[in-house]
Design a protein around this nucleic acid. Structure first.
Lengths: 256, 256
DNA sequence: CGAGGGTTTGAAGTGCATCAAATAGTGTGG
DNA sequence: CCACACTATTTGATGCACTTCAAACCCTCG
């Protein structure tokens, strides 16, 4: 079920090979081309590339020269920053409809973080030079980008808040809640989108802590876990437990 | 020493009463009107207000209807989010040249955080409605805003990284380094810009932890502390201690 | 001088990290 | 289809960093 947008999204000529629906949907969800001139969109359509990447592919490293900005059609990508001694901090993990690498425009043309595919992904590559040009010329495009960045920024605010105010089991509960579709009711069956180890570092904790905290969460809220499948019997008990420490109540996610 | 900008910043007609220099300087540092048409700037000049606020003033609360966007001429303002039971998470603490409240444009017209003056401040109030209009019309303004938001975003990324990878004394050391002017050498005398309790929550720790961690930092790096004055004998020993856990080396701050 | 907030210090508790090792799960080639 | 290798995940034991609660101290300001 595609997100309904008031604007029309032109379809891409022949660039896309396979899953055209996903493609258009992802572009729509990204909101980047909402209400822009078809000509703007077409310029991108001509110069973009769609590619598949296997889990484990490193797309670029921090400080790499930025040639492309990426739009996720499907799959998952993690953004992270790495210390000299191999420690890493996961900035975020993104999925379909989301864009990354675009802020290199405003830096010195370098990526401010590294990116790695963590679940097989189809990505759309937009030339960053083109994006930089068009943003300067097309007002609507700049406005859309502001909107996108502002949403991302608020998410980061919440991230800091979560890590400050919530303990490990609560952060996991909050993460699970964000996987639930808005408006879902009754018993919900979830699939963890990527490795538990990665979820752990996405949430700022160690894998061992994640494992134990998930156990505690089971006891406290009655969720059931089998491998990477999680069954949430009731949103209420989960959100009651997780969101109590937080400034915003469920759902704290951004709907897009 | 004012930051040099290649563009000229028109001076404000009669709106500003007192410290005109600070005013122009702050506007320049904000970068919001860099390279914009004088007409754009003048529209803002006509409709903006300059006001002084005492420490402790709450400017607005989270979810308040947003009428103004604020530009700090001088003083300090903290942005924070509050839970029902009074716990708060400090998102950031800002000073001269920085802007806040502007992202309400892209929300539902509500502030995504609360703001409180933490050191007597002079602020410039811009009507958010005007900003919203102009951003849609003036390409250069939108581009400048993107630049500003992107810089803020980088800082938030680092914030998450710092809280993940650095321990308490290292985070304090990093905070002190950011107070040092870029390029400073030899012994540096610093003044903590606001209450230690606030610095603590700005850095995501308890006041008691801050106090003890500052003690540890003294032993480790040879800094001296007298009340709110800190003497850093050498940048190197401080950055060696603090930045080793981090992805970027000193100076990790954004120069603006 | 006294009140009140900011800051420090002490003692005790807790949550998470760390190290080590067992177990489950996954993909490979035979 | 099975055995093997390798990785992901779990479990246990222990230690440390930070928090919490309590109380003293300090500083400022009326």
């Amino acid at each position: 079920m595609p997100t309904t947008h008031s604007n029309t999204i032109p379809t891409i000529p022949e660039a896309s090979s396979g899953s055209h629906d996903f493609f258009v949907q992802a572009l729509g969800r990204s909101g980047l081309f909402a209400n822009t001139q078809p000509s703007t969109f077409n310029r991108f359509a001509e110069q973009c590339q769609q590619r598949r990447y296997a889990k484990g592919t490193v797309l670029f490293l921090q400080e790499d020269e930025a040639d492309w900005c990426y739009l996720i059609i499907n799959g998952w990508v993690k953004l992270y920053r790495e210390t000299l001694d191999g420690d890493e901090a996961v900035v975020d993990a993104l999925t379909s409809g989301l864009m990354f690498g675009e802020t290199a425009i405003f830096e010195n043309g370098k990526y401010p973080y590294a990116a790695e595919v963590v679940e097989d992904a189809t990505l759309l590559l937009l030339p960053i030079r083109l994006l930089a040009e068009q943003v300067k010329q097309d007002n609507q495009l700049a406005f859309n980008m502001l909107k996108i960045m502002s949403r991302f920024q608020r998410q980061q605010d919440k991230e800091i808040e979560h890590r400050t105010l919530q303990n490990a089991p609560q952060r996991i509960g909050c993460f699970l809640l964000r996987l639930c579709r808005a408006g879902a009711e009754g018993e919900i069956r979830l699939h963890l989108p990527y490795d538990k180890t990665l979820i752990a570092s996405r949430l700022g904790m160690q894998p061992e802590t994640f494992s134990r905290a998930l156990g505690r969460l089971k006891n406290e809220t009655g969720i059931k876990v089998q491998g990477s499948t999680v069954i949430v019997p009731s949103i209420e008990s989960l959100s009651g437990y997780s969101c109590s420490a937080c400034t915003s109540s469920y759902p704290c996610q951004d709907l897009y």
